[in-house]
């Protein structure tokens, strides 16, 4: 299954390389990795989507924690969280198809951010599922170019990660974070 992990790290040269190098070396399967500034100056925030079982996710968390520049790691898979991805999709248009494409975009609350005679660019924001399904709708028209940001995640209200050190506890396979699905009321 897919796990959503969030890591905070010191914003230093090479830190992304340290993290991605570790993930590659340990042969973890990462579906997406997104990095940005956080609310704290000097601290970057990374969102990972990890494909694997709970042991893999547990190892990714632990190995991430060992990277000296990584200050905290949270597995938010089972938290109520807002999961979003942004996609920019350039679709080929003809006078006959332009209207239909724009209608699809509207249904998905996507925006048209660029337009000319031959194509237009749709900006879609939503869960990966939603973006995926819009892309499938647009594909028959001819997608000329596309970019996706990968998943970003923010927990809702009280589900916010505490970013504290984990309490040392009796490790049990079953006790590590698991479960299914991501809370998204939308």
């Amino acid at each position: 299954m897919q796990y959503t992990l969030v890591a905070w790290m010191r914003d230093k040269p090479g830190v992304l390389n340290r993290v991605s190098g570790m993930l590659r070396r340990r042969n973890f399967n990462i579906d997406s990795l997104q990095v940005s500034h956080s609310e704290t100056p000097g601290i970057s925030r990374m969102t990972f989507v990890v494909d694997g079982d709970e042991r893999v996710a547990d190892q990714v968390v632990k190995q991430l924690r060992k990277v000296v520049d990584v200050t905290a790691v949270e597995d938010i898979t089972n938290r109520l969280a807002i999961l979003r991805e942004l996609a920019l999709i350039r679709v080929r248009t003809t006078p006959a198809t332009r209207g239909e494409i724009m209608q699809f975009a509207e249904i998905y609350r996507a925006q048209i951010v660029d337009v000319n005679a031959e194509n237009l660019v749709v900006q879609a924001v939503g869960t990966e599922d939603k973006v995926d399904s819009l892309i499938e709708l647009l594909r028959p028209f001819g997608i000329e170019e596309m970019v996706r940001t990968g998943r970003v995640a923010l927990c809702r209200g009280d589900e916010r990660p505490k970013r504290t050190k984990p309490a040392t506890s009796i490790f049990k396979a079953a006790a590590s974070l698991n479960g299914s699905g991501h809370g998204d009321p939308e």
């Binding site: 042991r55 547990d58 190892q59 632990k62 190995q63 924690r65 060992k66 040392t168 009796i170 490790f171 049990k172 396979a173 590590s176």
Partner: peptide, 22 residues
Amino acid sequence: VHFELDRAEVGKNIVPDVAVIG
């Protein structure tokens, strides 16, 4: 039972019934 300082070694190859991390 796994007594270990490095948290990442616990559950890496063998999942113990009891882990004592420290």
